[in-house]
């Protein structure tokens, strides 16, 4: 899957965000989170695998730098709550790691790399409901590419990216891909359609529905 993605990095894909811009967007989001949550005393950041997890970690580091206290962060795998499980072969699960503070009574900020149809976030809300009862749930995304299929919006957006439904948006992150970039490219086969036989989970946008 990753190999296929890197093949797309060539002439057909173009970068719309590079490393420094991603850094700046995350720093801004970190400040916005602190402002909106009035200091963020009860904030827990949960990244959605795989792309959201390093982003949650980076946000936690930035908030810690500003406020000089650690912010709990973890990951929330939503595979078991997806509404398209039956459209594709059984997928490998991502990691779920809830920080020891738990989620009851806390302000959870879900972190994902790309917001598209909103179905991933719907699944994440269901997953959270089974884990406990947060005081509030907010959503941070690096890229909002539009085309929502559910009544869901992000509270914090790194960049709004107007796209056509047929285009693909791919977020590359240092922790996973060796470099930071947001690429926009021609359509790739969707998960669940012919040609996608992988059971690996991926943070490529095509799967992030």
């Amino acid at each position: 899957m990753h190999a296929q993605k890197h093949a797309d990095d060539g002439d057909e894909s173009r970068a719309v965000l590079e490393g420094p811009e991603i850094d700046r967007a995350l720093t801004r989001i970190a400040h916005e989170v602190l402002e909106r949550t009035k200091g963020g005393a009860d904030v827990t950041l949960l990244g959605i695998p795989s792309g959201g997890v390093p982003l949650a970690q980076r946000l936690a580091e930035r908030i810690e730098r500003v406020e000089d206290r650690p912010v709990p962060w973890g990951s929330l795998d939503i595979t078991m709550y997806r509404d398209d499980l039956r459209l594709a072969p059984a997928r490998a699960l991502g990691r779920t790691e809830i920080p020891p503070e738990g989620i009851d009574g806390r302000t959870i900020v879900l972190v994902d790399d790309v917001l598209f149809s909103g179905r991933t976030v719907r699944a994440a809300l269901d997953a959270l409901g089974d884990l406990g009862r947060p005081r509030a749930v907010q959503l941070a995304t690096l890229v909002d590419r539009g085309h929502r299929e559910l009544p869901i919006r992000a509270d914090y957006v790194g960049k709004n990216l107007p796209t056509s439904v047929r285009e693909s948006v791919t977020v590359l992150l240092k922790e996973i891909d060796g470099r930071d970039a947001v690429l926009i490219g021609p359509a790739k086969p969707r998960a669940g359609h012919a040609g996608d036989t992988t059971v690996q989970s991926t943070h490529a946008e095509g799967d992030n529905r």
Binding site: M80, Y81, A92, L93, G94, R95, T96, G129, D130
Partner: peptide, 20 residues
């Protein structure tokens, strides 16, 4: 085995159920 490792967490949650 890896899938089982992730699913083992469900046994320790308040809602011991997945909708899958």
């Amino acid at each position: 085995l890896d899938t089982a490792k992730e699913l083992a967490q469900v046994g320790g949650r308040s809602v011991k159920k997945l909708p899958t």
